[in-house]
Design a binder for these strands. Structure first.
Lengths: 136, 136
DNA sequence: AATGATAATGGAAATCGTTTCCATTAACAC
DNA sequence: GTGTTAATGGAAACGATTTCCATTATCATT
C-alpha cells in the first residue's frame, strides 16, 4: 500500500457517486500532484481484482468505479441509466427478490452450461424525470 | 434503404453471433468493396435507433450488435459472458420469470423515480467450461 | 434530358479513454 | 550502502469510434 493507492481508495470510499479514472485523478491531484493518471488506472485495476472496487460500464465510453457493496454502506444495488443526461440512479427496491431469482438462475445456468458465475449486471435504461419528453 | 444499409442488415440477420462493426465490415467487403467502415457505423446507429438492432457491450472494448428480439427467432434472451475467452452464451432459461420480475420492478421504479424505462440489460459474468481453472 | 435540392457516401484525419514503454525512483533485505 | 525488486509517472502508442468534407447518388420538377 503506497500513498497513491491509499489516495485512490480514499477518494472512492469518500464519494457516493460513480467516478471515472479521470474524476479520481482530478480529486487527488490538488493534494498529491505527483500521482499520475497511469497510476490511477493501475491502482484501479488492482482494487478491482482484489474485489474492493467494482468497475462499471454505463455505455458512455468511460469506465466508472464504485466501492464494492461489502463496504459501500448501500448494500447490493442496481442501476437506472438515463439515456438523456447520463444520470445514474442507484436503487435497491425489490433487490431481495431480484437476488433470489438471480441466485436460482445462476445455479441453473452454472449447471446447464458448466459455467462458473461470479458476478452479474442488471441495468435499466430510459429517460429520467427531467429528460422525459412531453408525452405525444 | 440503400445497398450498403441492406447489406449490413442482411449480415446481422444471417448471423447468429454477436458481430462488431468490423466483423460486419469484413463480411460485407468481399461483396461490396465500396462500402466503408464509416457507413457501417452510420447504418448501425440508424438500425439501433429504429429498434431493429440491439447494441451490446460486453466490456471487451468494442460494441457488438445483434438482431432485435422481435426478429431474431430466439426470442428474448440474456447473456453469459466468459471472462476468460470472451465467449458469449445466449440463454433463455427462467426468462419468463425474469421478465415478470423485471416488469414489476420497472413499474415500481418508474413510479418511484419518475423514470421512463424502455430497456434493460442482464448479464452474468464468470468462466466457461474450458476457461474454468481446476478447483483448488 | 437538364436542373437543382437533398441525402448518403467513403476515406482521411481527429478524438479520447486506456495501455504500453521505459527510464527513474522508492522500498527494503542483507 | 549495496543489490534486488516493485512502483512510479510522463510520453507515446493504441484502437474503436466520430467527425470532416469533398464527391456522388437520388429524385422530383421542368
Amino acid at each position: 500500500m503506497t500513498v497513491g493507492r491509499e489516495a485512490v481508495l480514499d477518494v472512492i470510499a469518500q464519494s457516493d457517486e460513480h467516478l471515472s479514472a479521470e474524476d479520481i485523478y482530478m480529486k487527488i491531484h490538488p493534494f498529491y500532484p505527483a500521482v499520475g493518471l497511469t497510476s490511477i488506472y493501475r491502482t484501479l485495476d488492482i482494487l478491482v481484482s482484489i474485489g474492493l472496487v467494482r468497475k462499471l460500464d454505463f455505455g458512455h465510453g468511460r469506465a466508472k468505479y464504485e466501492l464494492a457493496e461489502d463496504s459501500n454502506g448501500k448494500g447490493h444495488h442496481h442501476h437506472l441509466v438515463c439515456r438523456g443526461c447520463g444520470r445514474i440512479i442507484d436503487y435497491n427496491d425489490f433487490i431481495d427478490e431480484e437476488l433470489a431469482l438471480l441466485k436460482k438462475t445462476e445455479e441453473s445456468l452454472s449447471r446447464k452450461y458448466n459455467f462458473r458465475i461470479d458476478n452479474h449486471l442488471i441495468q435499466f435504461y430510459g429517460f429520467c424525470d427531467t429528460c422525459k419528453k412531453p408525452e405525444r
